[in-house]
Protein backbone atom coordinates (compact mmCIF):
# COMPACT_ATOMS: atom_id res chain seq x y z
CA UNK A 1 0.00 0.00 0.00
CA UNK A 2 1.35 3.46 -0.94
CA UNK A 3 1.04 6.32 1.55
CA UNK A 4 1.20 10.07 0.91
CA UNK A 5 2.00 12.59 3.64
CA UNK A 6 1.36 16.32 3.88
CA UNK A 7 3.25 18.37 6.46
CA UNK A 8 1.98 21.87 7.28
CA UNK A 9 4.46 23.70 9.47
CA UNK A 10 2.90 26.98 10.57
CA UNK A 11 3.80 29.58 13.15
CA UNK A 12 1.59 28.09 15.88
CA UNK A 13 1.02 24.43 14.98
CA UNK A 14 2.58 21.67 12.89
CA UNK A 15 0.00 19.42 11.24
CA UNK A 16 0.51 16.13 9.45
CA UNK A 17 -2.01 14.25 7.29
CA UNK A 18 -1.38 10.82 5.75
CA UNK A 19 -3.47 9.42 2.89
CA UNK A 20 -3.61 5.89 1.57
CA UNK A 21 -3.50 4.99 -2.11
CA UNK A 22 -7.23 5.57 -2.46
CA UNK A 23 -6.93 9.10 -1.09
CA UNK A 24 -8.54 8.35 2.28
CA UNK A 25 -7.21 10.08 5.39
CA UNK A 26 -5.68 7.28 7.47
CA UNK A 27 -3.65 9.19 10.08
CA UNK A 28 -3.12 12.73 11.29
CA UNK A 29 -1.40 14.65 14.04
CA UNK A 30 -1.42 18.25 15.28
CA UNK A 31 1.37 19.49 17.60
CA UNK A 32 2.43 22.95 18.77
CA UNK A 33 5.32 24.33 16.71
CA UNK A 34 7.09 25.96 19.66
CA UNK A 35 10.48 27.50 19.16
CA UNK A 36 12.06 24.62 17.22
CA UNK A 37 10.20 23.75 14.04
CA UNK A 38 12.36 20.71 13.17
CA UNK A 39 11.47 19.06 16.48
CA UNK A 40 7.77 19.75 15.89
CA UNK A 41 7.93 18.20 12.41
CA UNK A 42 9.63 15.08 13.81
CA UNK A 43 7.06 14.77 16.59
CA UNK A 44 4.05 15.21 14.34
CA UNK A 45 5.38 12.90 11.62
CA UNK A 46 6.42 10.10 13.95
CA UNK A 47 3.10 10.41 15.79
CA UNK A 48 1.14 9.85 12.58
CA UNK A 49 3.44 7.19 11.11
CA UNK A 50 3.71 5.17 14.35
CA UNK A 51 -0.06 4.91 14.44
CA UNK A 52 0.06 3.38 10.96
CA UNK A 53 3.06 1.24 11.83
CA UNK A 54 5.06 2.41 8.83
CA UNK A 55 8.52 3.94 8.49
CA UNK A 56 9.37 7.28 6.78
CA UNK A 57 10.72 5.29 3.82
CA UNK A 58 7.27 3.80 3.37
CA UNK A 59 5.91 7.14 2.14
CA UNK A 60 5.49 7.49 -1.62
CA UNK A 61 5.65 11.27 -1.24
CA UNK A 62 5.83 13.92 1.42
CA UNK A 63 4.83 17.46 0.46
CA UNK A 64 5.69 20.27 2.86
CA UNK A 65 3.71 23.49 3.23
CA UNK A 66 3.43 26.43 5.66
CA UNK A 67 6.07 28.95 6.66
CA UNK A 68 8.64 26.30 7.55
CA UNK A 69 8.12 24.29 4.35
CA UNK A 70 11.61 24.74 3.02
CA UNK A 71 13.17 23.50 6.24
CA UNK A 72 11.39 20.11 6.27
CA UNK A 73 14.03 17.41 5.69
CA UNK A 74 13.23 14.64 3.24
CA UNK A 75 10.34 16.47 1.52
CA UNK A 76 9.54 15.54 -2.07
CA UNK A 77 8.24 19.04 -2.83
CA UNK A 78 7.17 22.23 -1.10
CA UNK A 79 4.11 24.30 -1.93
CA UNK A 80 2.63 27.38 -0.26
CA UNK A 81 -0.29 26.87 2.10
CA UNK A 82 -2.44 28.98 -0.21
CA UNK A 83 -2.28 26.30 -2.92
CA UNK A 84 -2.71 23.55 -0.29
CA UNK A 85 -5.68 25.05 1.56
CA UNK A 86 -7.47 25.53 -1.77
CA UNK A 87 -6.92 21.88 -2.69
CA UNK A 88 -7.80 20.57 0.79
CA UNK A 89 -10.99 22.63 1.05
CA UNK A 90 -12.07 21.52 -2.43
CA UNK A 91 -11.57 17.87 -1.38
CA UNK A 92 -13.74 18.24 1.73
CA UNK A 93 -16.38 20.47 0.14
CA UNK A 94 -16.17 20.07 -3.67
CA UNK A 95 -18.43 23.06 -4.29
CA UNK A 96 -16.04 25.45 -2.52
CA UNK A 97 -15.46 28.69 -4.45
CA UNK A 98 -13.88 30.73 -1.70
CA UNK A 99 -11.65 29.72 1.21
CA UNK A 100 -11.12 31.88 4.27
CA UNK A 101 -8.01 30.63 6.04
CA UNK A 102 -7.27 32.08 9.46
CA UNK A 103 -3.81 30.93 10.42
CA UNK A 104 -1.55 31.79 13.31
CA UNK A 105 0.13 34.82 11.79
CA UNK A 106 -1.95 35.59 8.73
CA UNK A 107 -5.37 35.56 7.26
CA UNK A 108 -6.20 34.82 3.62
CA UNK A 109 -9.11 34.92 1.22
CA UNK A 110 -8.59 32.43 -1.64
CA UNK A 111 -10.78 32.09 -4.74
CA UNK A 112 -10.85 28.47 -5.92
CA UNK A 113 -11.74 27.16 -9.37
CA UNK A 114 -13.79 24.01 -10.15
CA UNK A 115 -10.67 21.84 -9.87
CA UNK A 116 -9.51 23.11 -6.49
CA UNK A 117 -6.86 25.39 -7.99
CA UNK A 118 -6.17 28.94 -6.79
CA UNK A 119 -7.80 31.55 -9.02
CA UNK A 120 -6.91 34.60 -6.89
CA UNK A 121 -5.98 35.38 -3.31
CA UNK A 122 -5.50 38.26 -0.89
CA UNK A 123 -3.71 38.32 2.45
CA UNK A 124 -3.48 40.68 5.41
CA UNK A 125 -0.53 43.06 5.48
CA UNK A 126 2.30 42.63 7.89
CA UNK A 127 0.16 42.94 11.00
CA UNK A 128 -1.62 40.46 13.21
CA UNK A 129 -5.16 41.90 12.95
CA UNK A 130 -7.66 39.13 12.25
CA UNK A 131 -5.19 36.27 12.77
CA UNK A 132 -4.93 33.44 15.27
CA UNK A 133 -2.36 35.48 17.16
CA UNK A 134 -4.90 38.33 17.50
CA UNK A 135 -7.38 36.00 19.25
CA UNK A 136 -4.63 34.56 21.45
CA UNK A 137 -3.56 37.99 22.70
CA UNK A 138 -7.17 39.11 23.27
CA UNK A 139 -8.11 35.96 25.19
CA UNK A 140 -5.19 36.67 27.49
CA UNK A 141 -6.37 40.26 27.98
CA UNK A 142 -9.81 38.89 28.93
CA UNK A 143 -8.16 36.30 31.22
CA UNK A 144 -9.87 33.35 29.53
CA UNK A 145 -8.67 30.37 27.49
CA UNK A 146 -8.57 30.78 23.73
CA UNK A 147 -11.28 28.16 23.18
CA UNK A 148 -13.65 30.00 25.53
CA UNK A 149 -13.60 33.20 23.45
CA UNK A 150 -16.03 32.06 20.74
CA UNK A 151 -18.73 30.57 23.00
CA UNK A 152 -18.46 33.64 25.24
CA UNK A 153 -19.00 35.94 22.26
CA UNK A 154 -22.22 34.12 21.33
CA UNK A 155 -23.74 35.11 24.70
CA UNK A 156 -23.27 38.83 24.04
CA UNK A 157 -26.29 41.07 24.49
CA UNK A 158 -24.69 44.23 23.14
CA UNK A 159 -21.35 43.72 21.34
CA UNK A 160 -18.94 46.63 21.84
CA UNK A 161 -17.58 48.44 18.79
CA UNK A 162 -13.80 48.41 18.88
CA UNK A 163 -12.09 51.38 17.31
CA UNK A 164 -8.92 49.47 16.41
CA UNK A 165 -8.02 46.03 15.08
CA UNK A 166 -4.31 46.55 15.55
CA UNK A 167 -3.30 43.82 18.01
CA UNK A 168 -1.32 46.25 20.14
CA UNK A 169 -3.93 49.03 20.25
CA UNK A 170 -6.91 46.66 20.52
CA UNK A 171 -5.27 44.99 23.50
CA UNK A 172 -5.00 48.36 25.27
CA UNK A 173 -8.60 49.07 24.36
CA UNK A 174 -9.73 45.71 25.75
CA UNK A 175 -7.80 46.31 28.96
CA UNK A 176 -9.58 49.67 29.26
CA UNK A 177 -13.02 48.07 28.65
CA UNK A 178 -12.34 45.38 31.25
CA UNK A 179 -11.36 48.07 33.75
CA UNK A 180 -14.57 49.96 32.86
CA UNK A 181 -16.69 46.92 33.83
CA UNK A 182 -17.88 46.15 30.30
CA UNK A 183 -19.38 42.61 30.19
CA UNK A 184 -16.73 40.13 28.92
CA UNK A 185 -19.18 38.55 26.44
CA UNK A 186 -19.78 41.92 24.80
CA UNK A 187 -16.06 42.54 24.50
CA UNK A 188 -15.51 39.03 23.08
CA UNK A 189 -18.22 39.60 20.49
CA UNK A 190 -16.69 42.97 19.60
CA UNK A 191 -13.32 41.29 19.00
CA UNK A 192 -14.84 38.60 16.78
CA UNK A 193 -16.66 41.27 14.85
CA UNK A 194 -13.46 43.32 14.39
CA UNK A 195 -11.58 40.30 13.05
CA UNK A 196 -14.50 39.47 10.75
CA UNK A 197 -14.39 43.03 9.35
CA UNK A 198 -10.77 42.43 8.32
CA UNK A 199 -11.81 39.20 6.64
CA UNK A 200 -14.61 40.96 4.79
CA UNK A 201 -12.14 43.48 3.33
CA UNK A 202 -9.93 40.64 2.07
CA UNK A 203 -12.92 38.75 0.65
CA UNK A 204 -13.99 41.80 -1.32
CA UNK A 205 -10.53 42.08 -2.86
CA UNK A 206 -10.98 38.68 -4.51
CA UNK A 207 -14.79 38.74 -4.82
CA UNK A 208 -17.47 37.09 -2.67
CA UNK A 209 -18.75 33.69 -3.79
CA UNK A 210 -21.75 31.60 -2.83
CA UNK A 211 -19.98 28.60 -1.28
CA UNK A 212 -17.41 29.54 1.35
CA UNK A 213 -15.23 27.20 3.43
CA UNK A 214 -13.34 28.38 6.49
CA UNK A 215 -10.03 26.70 7.40
CA UNK A 216 -7.13 27.12 9.80
CA UNK A 217 -7.14 27.36 13.58
CA UNK A 218 -9.33 30.47 13.54
CA UNK A 219 -12.20 28.36 12.14
CA UNK A 220 -12.51 26.73 15.58
CA UNK A 221 -13.75 30.05 17.00
CA UNK A 222 -17.53 29.85 16.80
CA UNK A 223 -18.00 33.53 17.67
CA UNK A 224 -15.73 34.59 14.80
CA UNK A 225 -17.53 32.26 12.39
CA UNK A 226 -20.90 33.73 13.40
CA UNK A 227 -19.59 37.26 12.82
CA UNK A 228 -18.20 36.34 9.38
CA UNK A 229 -21.47 34.65 8.41
CA UNK A 230 -23.41 37.73 9.42
CA UNK A 231 -21.12 40.13 7.53
CA UNK A 232 -20.89 38.05 4.36
CA UNK A 233 -24.53 36.93 4.46
CA UNK A 234 -23.74 33.25 3.91
CA UNK A 235 -23.33 29.98 5.81
CA UNK A 236 -19.77 28.72 6.10
CA UNK A 237 -18.62 25.16 5.46
CA UNK A 238 -16.64 24.12 8.54
CA UNK A 239 -14.32 21.11 8.30
CA UNK A 240 -14.25 18.74 11.31
CA UNK A 241 -10.55 19.55 11.73
CA UNK A 242 -9.96 22.95 10.12
CA UNK A 243 -6.29 23.06 11.16
CA UNK A 244 -5.59 19.97 9.09
CA UNK A 245 -6.82 21.29 5.73
CA UNK A 246 -3.40 22.59 4.59
CA UNK A 247 -1.66 19.30 5.38
CA UNK A 248 -4.51 17.41 3.69
CA UNK A 249 -4.16 19.53 0.55
CA UNK A 250 -0.40 19.00 0.53
CA UNK A 251 -0.84 15.22 0.79
CA UNK A 252 -3.44 15.27 -2.02
CA UNK A 253 -1.19 17.32 -4.31
CA UNK A 254 1.68 14.89 -3.61
CA UNK A 255 -0.55 11.97 -4.45
CA UNK A 256 -1.66 13.62 -7.70
CA UNK A 257 1.93 14.36 -8.70
CA UNK A 258 2.83 10.67 -8.11
CA UNK A 259 -0.17 9.52 -10.13
CA UNK A 260 0.80 11.84 -12.96
CA UNK A 261 -2.12 14.22 -12.90
CA UNK A 262 -3.27 17.29 -11.02
Amino acid sequence: MAYFAGVDIGSLTCDVAVLDGGGGLVAHEVVLTGARSRVAVELALSGALDRLGIAREGLASMVATGYGRERVDGRSASLTEITCHARGAHHLFPGTQLVIDVGGQDCKAIRVDDYGRVADFAMNDKCAAGTGRFFEVMARALEIDLDELGPLALRATKPVALSSVCTVFAESEVVGLVAGDEAPENIAAGLCRAAAEKVRALVHRVGLASEVTVTGGGALNVGFRAAVEELLGCTLNVPAQPQLVGALGAALLGREACNGHG
Binding site: Q105, V118, K126
Partner: peptide, 27 residues
Amino acid sequence: TLATDFSQEDTGQLKNRVDAFLEMVRT
Protein backbone atom coordinates in the same frame (compact mmCIF):
# COMPACT_ATOMS: atom_id res chain seq x y z
CA THR B 1 -0.23 43.40 -4.66
CA LEU B 2 2.72 43.60 -2.28
CA ALA B 3 2.85 46.26 0.43
CA THR B 4 6.22 46.66 2.08
CA ASP B 5 9.03 49.05 2.99
CA PHE B 6 12.83 48.91 3.07
CA SER B 7 13.08 46.59 6.10
CA GLN B 8 13.82 42.87 5.84
CA GLU B 9 11.49 41.66 8.61
CA ASP B 10 8.62 40.78 6.27
CA THR B 11 10.74 38.84 3.76
CA GLY B 12 9.17 35.52 4.86
CA GLN B 13 5.61 36.78 4.40
CA LEU B 14 6.41 38.37 1.05
CA LYS B 15 8.09 35.18 -0.18
CA ASN B 16 4.96 33.25 0.75
CA ARG B 17 2.77 35.56 -1.34
CA VAL B 18 5.15 35.56 -4.25
CA ASP B 19 5.52 31.76 -4.25
CA ALA B 20 1.74 31.29 -4.02
CA PHE B 21 1.23 33.73 -6.91
CA LEU B 22 3.79 31.91 -9.07
CA GLU B 23 2.18 28.53 -8.20
CA MET B 24 -1.19 29.98 -9.19
CA VAL B 25 0.02 31.35 -12.53
CA ARG B 26 1.87 28.13 -13.40
CA THR B 27 -1.13 25.77 -12.95
